[in-house]
Amino acid sequence: MSALKRVQQWATFARIWHVYDAAWQNPFHSAKLLKKYLMGLHKPIYHPLNDCGDHVIVINTGDIALPEDEWKKRAYFHHTGYPGGASWTVAWELHDKDPTMILKKAVYSSMDGNLQRRYTMERLHLFPDGKVPADLMKNVSNQIQQIRPVPKRLDHYSEQERKEFPKLIDYPKDYILR
């Protein structure tokens, strides 16, 4: 086996570590994307019995974005098993309690319920902010591109940028500026 083929062999069967920044991303759209990397669906050697999934580190899960009023509309159901043990938690309450839970549940429910699902979830590493342990971060060799562009707040632009940005309208001469 030539050196090239040997390296190709390693690269094919090695587990790759990806990093994904979830800031301002929809967790349900992100779940569909992350699932491909976790299950290895993006690889030509993919087979359901072939354990070829990659690791994904997701950072800033506390800063995920939901559309419009979905924070108070989406409910998470739980039942303790006892009579009267049903509970519904709204998305913002769940996110207050655990900022990684919404994304975790989104990825979990985006995959088919089979015996592999729990093991695939083991390869997903969620962090509410940018603080990732160094021993995980040193494995990372790829960054997954975000789905939505991250908006920039007006107060994060400099005064110069705001002043020199092309203006569509000007005030009338007699306008009292407020």
Binding site: A23, W24, N26, D63, I64, A65, L66, P67, E68, D69, E70, W71, K72, V90, A91, W92, H95, R148, P151
Partner: peptide, 14 residues
């Protein structure tokens, strides 16, 4: 407060 503190985005087609 509450849900207002979390990031949200809008669809302009609405």
């Amino acid at each position: 407060h509450h849900w207002k503190k979390f990031n949200k985005y809008f669809d302009e087609s609405t």
